[in-house]
Design a protein around this nucleic acid. Structure first.
Lengths: 143, 143
DNA sequence: CTATGTGCAAAATGTTTGCAGACGA
DNA sequence: TCGTCTGCAAACATTTTGCACATAG
């Protein structure tokens, strides 16, 4: 996996730096869909001198290499996902966490939409909003 | 229509001001899903003294009254839609315009998703990306 | 050794806030 | 008249940029 990123970077003429690997690995290792700042905070203990600008610049490259996708869940910042398969996401309106929704077939729906519009559809993004299991539990058993 | 907004504002204890009516009317009169700045620019000729802050504050109220919904098409700013029915949107990756996608039944798809997750689903937002008819035409007949 | 990358600080962008004067009810 | 609203400017948060030094190849 790490080898893969290394060669992908090199192939496109990008240099392989510890920061770039660390940022990609942090993204690949989590399902939390972190924002730039969350990645930065997570890497602070390991790379105390790394700057937020480096996180942004690296994400830009990772996007170019199709190694991450960008999420726009309605917050004031973007989130990033190293799983670049096209899957829907859910955001908990209570605690703010964002989860994947795998295993739902959207092809029918996308097909119907594509048939209804004059646009040429090249991609889509589905966001669901609700309450996650933990927040449901918290809500039903008040302290 | 205008009467309706007036009384909705009054009912909730908000004052009815020309700026608020103008902002809502501007939103209700267009299908372009303008951002705060686009609304501001559109109203400049008629209300030259109006500030962007007023646009933002008014939109906040309109959201509270469920008179507008917020769109997050992946740009760096939000867009607003006075059509509060839950319908998908398409964004042209070429010219940036955002259009409605009415007449597509999402109930099946939403139902499948809701059945697959432990979240309680309370809402959703579908964004499609592609090329609008005009940009397709432009692309096929280069100057 | 050279070109690119990093880290810092400053800038840019979009949005929010505080406050004095204006205005709707 | 009174309380809220407006408009301005300043504050804020997120992301981008410029540049000197560091480092991968």
């Amino acid at each position: 996996m790490e080898f893969c990123v290394t060669s992908l970077l090199r192939d496109k003429g990008f240099k392989v730096t510890p920061q770039r690997l660390a940022i990609y690995n942090a993204l690949a290792a989590t399902k939390a869909h972190p924002s730039a700042e969350m990645i930065y905070n997570e890497l602070q203990p390991i790379y105390p001198t790394m700057s937020l600008a480096t996180v942004y610049k690296t994400i830009e490259i990772l996007k170019e290499l199709d190694l991450v996708q960008v999420l726009n869940v309605g917050e004031d910042s973007f989130r990033y996902d190293a799983d670049t398969t096209n899957h829907p996401h859910v955001r908990c309106m209570c605690c703010g966490r964002v989860d994947d929704l795998h295993g739902v077939d959207a092809a029918d729906f996308v097909g119907k939409v594509a048939a209804q519009t004059d646009y040429t559809i090249t991609g889509q993004q589905f966001y669901f909003y609700g309450t996650c299991p933990e927040c449901q539990r918290k809500a039903s058993t008040p302290s």
